[in-house]
């Protein structure tokens, strides 16, 4: 089975993040950039399928030059190769444009299975797997907590929902997005770390993919952020001093805020 894992480099969600004043996009240069957490689970799932069924695993990333660092880290877990879609015109691309670029890159790879995290920790839109599947005209099995591949290549997914889970199936090729309940990602081994920099990474530009730069980036975005403001500093809370009536006052506060 030929699997492509969509990997996004995101700013560390544990650190402070800033938006640029000029175009309201996230300040990536100064941020600590990491592999989107949920994508680690997608890589792990791809590697487990490869261990069980053979085939190859390719990482696909769209991002600026520094995304190469996340590609190297992803490869250190074990995938065979990577494709980096890199083009200055991509900066500020909206989700719709991004899905067009990823779909175009996927067409060049013709995978049996596309895996991705169910969401990214920066955008949190959860739309990319659906959009990519739609563009490729293949099934989208999203929000998986379990994925199995049958003898005939049929994919069966336990799709996690708020109420429980649904069992859905599809023939390959298909897109499957995963939650962090699906597995426990491995640590990259030292051999993996040392091998990563020797693995092939092909870099594709928009021209390579036949995409007009005007359709992507800030210029081609279907939506635009017109302004942003920092969250106001937290103000001091209301202090209740217990003078025998503390309980009553607490309940009054909770009731006034409609908590009870």
């Amino acid at each position: 089975m030929k699997t492509v894992v969509l990997v996004k480099q995101v700013p560390d969600s544990g650190a402070e993040r800033r938006l640029r004043d000029a175009d309201h996009t996230i300040e990536r240069e100064s941020a600590d950039n990491l592999i989107n957490e949920m994508d680690d689970y997608a890589i792990e799932e791809a590697l487990r399928l490869q261990e069980a069924h053979g085939g190859e695993v390719t990482i696909l990333t769209m991002g600026p030059t520094q995304a190469a660092e996340s590609i190297r880290k992803a490869l250190s877990m074990g995938p065979d190769q990577a494709v980096h879609v890199l083009d200055d015109a991509l900066a500020g691309s909206c989700a719709v444009a991004t899905s067009a670029v990823l779909a175009a890159a996927l067409r060049t790879l013709s995978p049996d299975l596309v895996l991705s995290g169910a969401e990214s920790t920066d955008g949190r839109v959860q739309a990319m797997p659906h959009m990519v599947a739609e563009r490729l005209g293949i099934a989208a099995l999203t929000g998986a907590r379990k994925l199995t591949v049958g003898g005939d290549g049929t994919l069966t997914v336990e799709r996690q929902t708020d109420e429980g889970y649904e069992v859905v199936t599809a023939a390959t090729p298909a897109v499957v997005s995963v939650w962090d309940t699906i597995n426990e990602p491995r640590y990259p081994s030292f051999k993996g770390i040392m091998a990563a920099k020797k693995k092939p990474v092909s870099v594709l530009s928009l021209a390579d993919l036949g995409i007009d730069p005007g359709e992507v980036g800030t210029a081609g975005a279907t939506s635009a952020v017109v302004s942003h403001q920092e969250r106001p500093a937290r103000s001091a809370g209301q202090k209740i001093i217990d003078q025998g009536d503390g309980g009553v006052k607490l309940v009054e506060f909770l009731a006034s805020e409609k908590f009870v």
Partner: peptide
């Protein structure tokens, strides 16, 4: 090097 930092990071995580 990047590789040395990666080794350190994975041991720190473990």
């Amino acid at each position: 090097t990047d590789e040395e930092r990666d080794v350190r990071a994975v041991v720190a995580k473990l």
